[in-house]
């Protein structure tokens, strides 16, 4: 048909090719199985799984979550089944889809990051790695991976040597200069950066005078953090030559488009999955209809096109 309108949603992250820019944010989508009841996983740009470590982790004591205005605090503490269980019990399920699987992982030392990356690199059905250097709920001292530029450079460059998969570094917003941290990740060999992880926050029960989380502080996510996230994506986009994956409070196509205008090559939906398990596919549909109605042929034409 001569008048057929098309919208090209394809994007690349390093070597990784995505059919559309919408991914799931680590820790909000489990290992995909629970959500396959609600959405067709084949429609997603990529699935990012719950953060994994070499050995299973128990996580933090409850209560682990508290709702706040337009957001939520969590202090799960990176509870996970460990890499071996993931490969054996969860990856076969994800392999049946035509959607790339991005494995989010972390370590408690540089050596552990390296060992984990090496192990994951050899597994069939894993298309990219996302290094979590930015969880706000780990023990004191751990935060240096994502907040001390020297340590960030070291851990990212060591992991880089271990893998030829697309390497994404997930950045912490709990820093003074996020663009600096993003440049450090790029210099250390990252193929992309993803941001933001949650913002450290706290909520108090005024009657008991106790923090609402057993961990005292937790990570704030949801629409409440979106303007902060958009600003940080924009700062990183201006400062980098590698792709930026934007996230933080995306619950609608309009939110996703805002991130893309700020410079995101791809976006991830996190807390939005909790509000509506169909959020990701609704956002993909919404981006497409926005592009068609605005006459935008390729999503690449939208990227970073905010007029400042």
């Amino acid at each position: 048909m001569a008048n057929k309108k098309t919208a090209d949603l394809k994007v690349n992250l390093g070597k990784l090719k995505l059919k559309n820019p919408v991914m799931t944010a680590s820790g909000t989508f489990g290992y995909g199985d629970e959500y396959s009841e609600f959405i067709d996983i084949n429609k997603l740009g990529a699935v990012v799984v719950k953060g994994l470590s070499l050995k299973p982790k128990e996580g933090n004591p409850p209560p682990r979550i508290a709702e706040t205005p337009a957001g939520m605090l969590n202090a799960i503490g990176l509870q996970n089944i460990g890499i071996d269980s993931f490969i054996k019990k969860k990856l076969p399920f994800l392999r049946q889809f035509k959607t790339p699987v991005i494995v989010n992982f972390f370590g408690d030392s540089i050596a552990e990051y390296v060992k984990t990356a090496k192990k994951l690199n050899a597994i069939k059905g894993i298309h990219a790695l996302e290094m979590n250097i930015s969880c706000p709920n780990k023990q004191a001292g751990w935060s240096i991976f994502g907040t001390d530029p020297k340590v960030t450079f070291k851990v990212v460059s060591e992991v880089r040597k271990m893998t030829d998969l697309t390497l994404i570094v997930k950045l912490s917003p709990n820093v003074t200069d996020i663009a600096l941290m993003a440049r450090v990740a790029e210099d250390a060999g990252a193929d992309a950066v993803s941001l933001i992880n949650t913002l450290t926050g706290m909520a108090i029960d005024i009657k008991t005078k106790r923090p609402k989380l057993a961990n005292i502080t937790g990570g704030l996510s949801g629409p409440a953090v979106k303007p902060v996230a958009v600003r940080m994506v924009w700062e990183c986009y201006k400062s980098l030559s590698i792709p930026v994956i934007g996230m933080g409070g995306i619950i609608s196509a309009a939110d996703a488009i805002e991130f893309i205008l700020a410079g995101a090559s791809a976006v991830a939906v996190g807390t939005g999955n909790f509000i509506n398990p169909e959020a990701t596919v609704n956002i993909i549909k919404g981006i497409k209809s926005f592009m068609l109605s605005e006459g935008i042929k390729s999503i690449k034409d939208l990227r970073g096109s905010v007029k400042c």
Partner: peptide, 9 residues
């Protein structure tokens, strides 16, 4: 948060 088993909250 999710009610589905994914958030571990």
């Amino acid at each position: 948060a999710c009610g589905l088993g994914t958030c571990l909250g």
